[in-house]
Deep mutational scan, measured.
Amino acid sequence: MLDDRARMEAAKKEKVEQILAEFQLQEEDLKKVMRRMQKEMDRGLRLETHEEASVKMLPTYVRSTPEGSEVGDFLSLDLGGTNFRVMLVKVGEGEEGQWSVKTKHQMYSIPEDAMTGTAEMLFDYISECISDFLDKHQMKHKKLPLGFTFSFPVRHEDIDKGILLNWTKGFKASGAEGNNVVGLLRDAIKRRGDFEMDVVAMVNDTVATMISCYYEDHQCEVGMIVGTGCNACYMEEMQNVELVEGDEGRMCVNTEWGAFGDSGELDEFLLEYDRLVDESSANPGQQLYEKLIGGKYMGELVRLVLLRLVDENLLFHGEASEQLRTRGAFETRFVSQVESDTGDRKQIYNILSTLGLRPSTTDCDIVRRACESVSTRAAHMCSAGLAGVINRMRESRSEDVMRITVGVDGSVYKLHPSFKERFHASVRRLTPSCEITFIESEEGSGRGAALVSAVACKKACMLGQ
């Protein structure tokens, strides 16, 4: 009897593995994704193909990295998701002549009506938060230079001027797309009239992360975010950046690689679950690469896999709870928690219980395998993109072996128990001629924006502006 049951459990697990095998990517698959990513990057950089390229390769006008001589107080704003952060950054000489960066910050959550109302409502709310922060720190009387981390696709015309191309991540505030974001912020500050600010720089969160990590390690020339969304930036040779005049030196390019796949480059790798996630998203047909990796989508992918296993009578005796059938019910943090389970399955059992399920031991094991399959594919897909960037940098610099540091931020990278190990191992397999160091950014977005502002202020002083 026991043997029969054991055989049935083994057969069930084997069927589960057959279904989950769809998520496995072979090294040849990853090399294919990497080569296609490089081709799209090239198209994004070139003037004649930029418009139709899915990977936009947006110039950021960040050319210099901090040298350690900029000092002063800077205000930093960070808008990239449902939370908005205001930070005071003091850049100065530390002990023994070292450079020191001290920060104080406060988080504000953005109400739904500000995210989806008008641009005026959104930026009025942001300036209200700045006003509140300055009151708390008794700094209303000071006109501070301000660095703005704005983590949406922007076409820069200068370091302090950028046109919002399109909202992502659930934002829909009308009247912002096609307009200068810094102008919208300046107008809102003017409307309030109770404080003055000098907006000197606007950067993407990947750029802010790279600059913040450069402060720790001067070989950091790539910034990457794996959180709600997924994106990367890197220092490109100016001669390859056709959208900006000049051939000397390097400029940081914001790849906006989340949109890779929007022209069909990933079609052969998309599964039924991916198509369902895409169809029910706020932007169907867009940001397809990001939807395979980002935390906004990972939990939902797992939920759809679990429903398939229920329908195949391989999980929960073929019956799903009402909660499990509800879109968004299986949160991405559950994926991390399930994979963090120590082996007694308590954590998995508790999560499934909150979803109205009474799982068996085998159910718990199957749910864990589903989570591992989805998150491992995410790590491997992400590795193909980064390997594409790094191999490109090595080739354009004609280096036999390139040493490089990548600064990384984002909740999936930082909080998932195995993502970074799987990701690092896969990147290294795909970049055999590179020695890569990964560092995690601390308060990256805010500190990085302030350091970019410090560079901009120093330049302005040198130019006598």
Score class of each variant (00 low, 15 high):
residue 113 D to T: 15
residue 113 D to A: 07
residue 407 G to R: 03
residue 172 K to L: 07
residue 91 V to Q: 06
residue 80 G to R: 12
residue 253 V to S: 00
residue 428 R to A: 13
residue 119 A to R: 11
residue 104 K to Y: 11
residue 213 C to W: 02
residue 205 D to S: 07
residue 75 L to T: 01
residue 326 T to L: 14
residue 422 R to G: 12
residue 39 K to L: 08
residue 417 P to F: 04
residue 147 G to L: 02
residue 4 D to Y: 02
residue 264 G to R: 05
residue 231 N to H: 00
residue 358 R to T: 03
residue 6 A to G: 10
residue 21 A to D: 12
residue 64 S to H: 14
residue 208 A to S: 15
residue 158 D to Q: 13
residue 358 R to A: 06
residue 100 S to I: 06
residue 352 L to R: 01
residue 210 M to H: 03
residue 364 C to S: 05
residue 152 F to V: 11
residue 439 I to E: 09
residue 257 W to A: 03
residue 61 Y to S: 02
residue 115 M to C: 13
residue 283 N to I: 11
residue 3 D to R: 02
residue 196 E to F: 08
residue 464 G to F: 13
residue 199 V to A: 06
residue 12 K to A: 13
residue 17 E to G: 11
residue 11 A to D: 07
residue 149 T to F: 09
residue 70 E to A: 13
residue 400 D to L: 04
residue 448 G to K: 12
residue 327 R to V: 12
residue 79 L to H: 04
residue 184 L to M: 07
residue 124 D to T: 07
residue 280 S to N: 13
residue 196 E to I: 03
residue 455 V to E: 12
residue 355 L to E: 01
residue 373 S to H: 04
residue 99 W to S: 08
residue 34 M to A: 03
residue 252 C to Y: 00
residue 143 K to C: 07
residue 254 N to V: 06
residue 90 K to I: 06
residue 347 Q to R: 04
residue 50 H to Y: 06
residue 209 T to P: 00
residue 10 A to Y: 14
residue 161 K to V: 13
residue 411 S to E: 14
residue 102 K to L: 07
residue 327 R to K: 07
residue 380 H to N: 14
residue 458 K to H: 15
residue 334 F to L: 15
residue 429 R to K: 14
residue 122 L to R: 07
residue 63 R to A: 00
residue 89 V to Q: 03
residue 105 H to Q: 03
residue 430 L to P: 00
residue 225 I to C: 01
residue 50 H to D: 01
residue 197 M to Y: 08
residue 226 V to E: 02
residue 296 K to A: 11
residue 58 L to R: 06
residue 180 N to T: 05
residue 290 E to L: 15
residue 401 V to A: 09
residue 139 M to S: 14
residue 340 S to T: 04
residue 310 V to Y: 09
residue 422 R to P: 15
residue 176 A to D: 14
residue 337 Q to K: 08
residue 427 V to R: 00
residue 122 L to I: 08
residue 209 T to M: 01
residue 167 W to E: 13
residue 256 E to R: 08
residue 303 R to T: 03
residue 300 E to W: 01
residue 272 E to Y: 01
residue 214 Y to G: 08
residue 113 D to I: 10
residue 385 G to Q: 08
residue 170 G to A: 08
residue 425 A to S: 15
residue 270 L to G: 04
residue 156 H to L: 07
residue 244 V to D: 00
residue 107 M to Q: 11
residue 268 E to A: 08
residue 57 M to L: 04
residue 132 D to I: 10
residue 260 F to I: 04
residue 230 C to V: 12
residue 426 S to M: 13
residue 152 F to M: 10
residue 263 S to A: 09
residue 195 F to Y: 03
residue 154 V to M: 15
residue 219 Q to V: 15
residue 278 D to C: 12
residue 420 K to V: 12
residue 96 E to Q: 12
residue 92 G to A: 05
residue 268 E to T: 07
residue 290 E to N: 12
residue 304 L to R: 06
residue 412 V to P: 12
residue 67 E to D: 14
residue 459 K to A: 11
residue 249 G to Y: 03
residue 358 R to C: 09
residue 88 L to N: 04
residue 60 T to E: 00
residue 310 V to Q: 14
residue 312 E to N: 03
residue 40 E to I: 06
residue 147 G to C: 07
residue 259 A to Y: 09
residue 372 E to S: 11
residue 422 R to F: 10
residue 396 S to P: 08
residue 180 N to I: 10
residue 41 M to D: 00
residue 60 T to D: 00
residue 361 T to F: 02
residue 51 E to R: 12
residue 247 D to G: 03
residue 185 L to D: 00
residue 322 E to L: 14
residue 66 P to T: 15
residue 331 E to C: 15
residue 160 D to R: 11
residue 233 C to A: 00
residue 144 L to H: 09
residue 262 D to S: 11
residue 308 R to F: 12
residue 29 D to V: 03
residue 66 P to C: 11
residue 303 R to W: 03
residue 135 D to L: 05
residue 215 Y to S: 00
residue 216 E to A: 03
residue 331 E to M: 12
residue 183 G to L: 06
residue 89 V to R: 01
residue 301 L to V: 09
residue 264 G to T: 13
residue 151 S to K: 12
residue 168 T to S: 12
residue 376 T to D: 09
residue 412 V to C: 09
residue 13 K to C: 15
residue 153 P to K: 08
residue 87 M to Y: 04
residue 407 G to C: 08
residue 409 D to Q: 10
residue 142 K to G: 04
residue 416 H to Q: 10
residue 84 F to L: 11
residue 401 V to H: 06
residue 234 Y to V: 05
residue 406 V to I: 09
residue 136 K to D: 10
residue 327 R to G: 11
residue 235 M to C: 00
residue 234 Y to C: 04
residue 296 K to R: 09
residue 90 K to W: 02
residue 130 I to Y: 08
residue 438 F to W: 08
residue 384 A to W: 05
residue 270 L to K: 03
residue 389 V to R: 00
residue 92 G to M: 06
residue 394 R to C: 03
residue 40 E to C: 09
residue 339 E to V: 01
residue 283 N to F: 12
residue 228 T to F: 04
residue 249 G to L: 01
residue 393 M to W: 09
residue 270 L to Y: 07
residue 264 G to V: 07
residue 295 G to S: 13
residue 111 P to F: 06
residue 331 E to Q: 09
residue 118 T to S: 10
residue 78 D to M: 04
residue 301 L to F: 05
residue 383 S to M: 04
residue 106 Q to H: 04
residue 280 S to C: 10
residue 124 D to S: 05
residue 371 C to R: 00
residue 340 S to Y: 05
residue 226 V to R: 01
residue 365 D to C: 02
residue 110 I to P: 02
residue 391 N to Q: 09
residue 32 K to V: 03
residue 3 D to K: 00
residue 376 T to S: 08
residue 304 L to M: 07
residue 173 A to R: 03
residue 61 Y to T: 05
residue 100 S to F: 04
residue 221 E to Y: 03
residue 344 D to R: 02
residue 444 G to K: 13
residue 49 T to P: 06
residue 347 Q to I: 10
residue 325 R to P: 06
residue 395 E to T: 08
residue 348 I to C: 08
residue 373 S to I: 11
residue 231 N to Y: 05
residue 9 E to M: 11
residue 335 V to M: 09
residue 32 K to M: 05
residue 75 L to A: 00
residue 450 A to M: 14
residue 276 L to D: 11
residue 393 M to Q: 11
residue 298 M to V: 08
residue 257 W to T: 02
residue 404 I to V: 06
residue 419 F to Q: 03
residue 42 D to C: 07
residue 362 T to L: 09
residue 90 K to A: 01
residue 34 M to Y: 09
residue 231 N to F: 02
residue 358 R to D: 05
residue 219 Q to N: 15
residue 246 G to E: 03
residue 252 C to M: 08
residue 178 G to K: 15
residue 13 K to L: 13
residue 52 E to T: 14
residue 356 G to Y: 03
residue 232 A to W: 02
residue 221 E to W: 05
residue 373 S to K: 05
residue 437 T to S: 08
residue 294 G to M: 08
residue 351 I to T: 02
residue 305 V to W: 00
residue 443 E to Y: 14
residue 338 V to N: 01
residue 408 V to L: 09
residue 238 M to C: 02
residue 267 D to N: 14
residue 253 V to M: 03
residue 397 R to S: 07
residue 247 D to T: 03
residue 440 E to L: 11
residue 228 T to M: 05
residue 221 E to T: 11
residue 160 D to N: 13
residue 3 D to S: 08
residue 319 E to N: 13
residue 361 T to R: 03
residue 374 V to W: 01
residue 398 S to N: 02
residue 337 Q to M: 12
residue 313 N to Q: 10
residue 187 D to Y: 05
residue 31 K to Q: 06
residue 453 S to A: 09
residue 465 Q to C: 12
residue 143 K to I: 00
residue 146 L to R: 07
residue 36 R to E: 01
residue 180 N to D: 06
residue 209 T to W: 02
residue 34 M to V: 05
residue 438 F to L: 05
residue 69 S to C: 10
